[in-house]
């Protein structure tokens, strides 16, 4: 690991599914404590980008550096890389056969080999902080969508990942539950976490992100501070995307 290196660096990432070119050369750097929001229409490659960084999807070309280490190198141990990256999915993906507390502590116990007491103490601490400590022994389907998503976030951050990937984490939630999840993300930002998030919540991107990236047809069409990308876009495609979005909402 190289302490001076950016947390995440993408160089020329390409990915196709059959004839469909989803990512056509992505270059991106995310520094420590930075929150970067990725916006773009459905099918612009946001989720594929997230999955590629987490090595759930193998890239066709280009390199991915995590703290300076090339994790796209096939000799790298995928499990060790993934343990350093926290991921939160659109549909929470909690394990339905485990209690909330077991969901949250699983990685600490199995991957980092902490004792159960140690892992559970830390798990309870975080569950208490997000106000659902009393649900620790419940199963995921006994929680609301917003609560499940917050548990998923806690599960992702419990093992202190150096990078947090949030993949449209509010898209599957009822509108009145979105707020509680975004508040938690805001807290993580204030705690200094490094976050890369794909989102449709423009207002939230404006408030929380240090940088906004507009992804269009597999390329980064615009990259800059939220005020610029969302308020005064330099590119025609970004303007089109935003005007379509605001006309609908």
């Amino acid at each position: 690991m190289n302490p001076g290196a950016p947390v995440l660096q993408l160089a020329g990432i390409r990915k196709s599914f059959g004839p469909n070119q989803v990512l056509r050369g992505i270059d991106l750097t995310v520094h420590e404590h930075e929150v970067v929001a990725v916006i773009g229409a459905s099918g612009s490659g946001k989720s594929t980008l997230m999955r590629a960084i987490n090595l759930l999807e193998r890239v066709d070309d280009g390199q991915i550096f995590l703290s300076g280490q090339d994790i796209s190198d096939p000799r790298v141990k995928e499990d060790l890389v993934r343990a350093q990256i926290g991921v939160v999915f659109q549909h929470y993906n909690l394990f339905p056969h485990m209690t909330v507390l077991n969901n949250v502590t699983l990685a600490s116990r199995v991957v980092r080999k902490l004792s159960r007491e140690e892992a559970e103490a830390r798990g309870m601490e975080l569950l208490t902080r997000i106000g659902i400590a009393e649900k620790a022994k419940k199963y995921p389907d006994q929680l609301s969508g917003g609560q499940q998503q917050r548990v998923a976030i806690v599960r992702a951050i419990l093992s202190d990942p150096i990078l947090l990937l949030l993949d449209e984490i509010t898209s599957a939630l009822d509108p009145q539950l979105v707020g509680e999840v975004l508040d938690l993300v805001m807290e993580l930002k204030l705690a200094g976490k490094t976050i890369l998030m794909a989102t449709h919540e423009m207002e939230f991107a404006r408030r929380a992100a240090d940088r906004v990236i507009f992804l269009h047809e597999g390329r980064i069409a615009e990259d800059g501070p939220p005020a610029q990308v969302l308020g005064n876009p330099q590119q025609q495609v970004t303007r089109d995307f935003l005007s379509r979005l605001y006309n609908f909402s």
Binding site: R82, G86, A107
Partner: peptide
């Protein structure tokens, strides 16, 4: 997605 969630936590294939 269950497999993806488990793998992204760093669990091995067998785990």
């Amino acid at each position: 997605s269950q497999r993806a969630a488990a793998r992204s936590l760093g669990l091995s294939h067998t785990q």
